[in-house]
């Protein structure tokens, strides 16, 4: 890491930062140099860190305080202890939001993982034009949620939408009502989010596939392994670090899902697509119950952090 320039000259400004003071140097100049170095180091980080601390770290800490108060926009925050959390336990809408979020995550994580790995394997070839197809697959990820949501809502339109016309042509008798039906709204949202996200994770998988040593495939082929066996016994084990990283990212992304749902279904019909983030938004910014909304936010925060920690520990145990 730290390359220390060992030179015979007496220490001047030329010393590597953090390096041990030279043999001939007295204590005072060395420590002054060190202090100077620390100050310069901080000066690099400070412009970004001030913004980061004020806008991220402080709000995260304030969140916990707010969740213990009953604050609406008017008046001062009143301390209520754990009342907000007790209310969470009884709140039917909160339970619905939590269940829906888990429902979304339970399908979004594995299906996106499979779709992006499939795409990556398909596009990890040296064929002419493959770069074009990679670009195509990634494109949905960088287009705006609002445009995507409105287009898909039209495609999913129950009577005249192309999706149901296609299903009708395949002979499906009663095609689903998609975003207008309480049973099908969540599957519709999940389909759209897989379509949108898979290109991004495909890129991560493609980067991971470059690290798989070609000799392993050669050796497996020599041993007579077919394509399927090579996939399970070479590709999958070698991709494990990538798969782990993607799973962690996908999990956080799934639990905080918000904007797509807000624009596509606004939580409906009924509460069929109400998710945690949206409940925070509704309680906070629509009903001005900042204290209670913060308690919901704390639960989202804890879910994300705990699952991430659990995933890291589990991964460590498997590595050992």
């Amino acid at each position: 890491m730290a390359t220390i320039a060992v030179d015979e000259r007496p220490p001047a400004g030329a010393r590597g930062p953090g390096g041990p003071p030279g043999r001939s140097s007295r204590r005072r100049p060395g420590s002054r140099l060190k202090r100077r170095n620390t100050l310069i180091g901080w000066s690099f980080i400070l412009p970004n860190f001030v913004g980061f601390a004020v806008l991220t770290l402080v709000p995260v800490i304030t969140l916990f305080y707010l969740s213990l108060t009953s604050w609406n926009v008017f008046g001062a925050a009143e301390w209520v202890g754990l009342d907000n959390f007790a209310r969470l336990l009884r709140d039917g809408s909160y339970h619905t939001a939590l269940t829906n979020t888990v429902y979304y995550a339970a399908f979004h994580i594995p299906l996106t993982l499979a779709a992006s790995l499939g795409l990556a394997l398909l596009l990890n070839r040296k064929l002419r034009g493959v770069a074009f197809f990679r670009t195509v697959a990634f494109f949905p990820y960088i287009t705006s949620i609002v445009a995507i949501a409105v287009v898909w809502n039209m495609l999913f339109s129950p009577e005249f939408g192309p999706v149901n016309q296609f299903l009708g042509a395949l002979g499906v008798e009663n095609p689903p009502g998609w975003t207008t039906s309480a049973d099908w709204s969540m599957p519709a949202v999940i389909l759209v989010s897989i379509w949108r996200d898979m290109g991004y994770y495909m890129l991560l998988f493609l980067a991971g596939l470059q690290t798989v040593p070609a000799e392993l495939y050669e050796a497996a082929r020599m041993d007579g392994a077919n394509g399927w066996q090579r996939f399970w016994n070479v590709t999958i084990p070698c991709l494990r670090p990538t798969t782990f990283f993607i799973t962690v990212m996908l999990t956080i992304q799934s639990f905080k899902v918000f904007d797509l749902i807000l624009v596509m279904t606004n939580g409906g019909p009924g509460q069929s697509t109400l998710v945690l983030s949206q409940y925070i938004y509704a309680k906070g910014f629509v009903e001005n119950q900042f204290g209670y909304a913060s308690a919901v936010a704390v639960s989202l925060f804890l879910i994300c952090i705990l699952i991430t920690i659990f995933q890291f520990l589990w991964n460590k145990r498997r590595d050992a």
Partner: peptide
């Protein structure tokens, strides 16, 4: 840490 969790503070 999702932004949605600290957007209120």
């Amino acid at each position: 840490v999702p932004w949605q969790s600290y957007m209120i503070p």
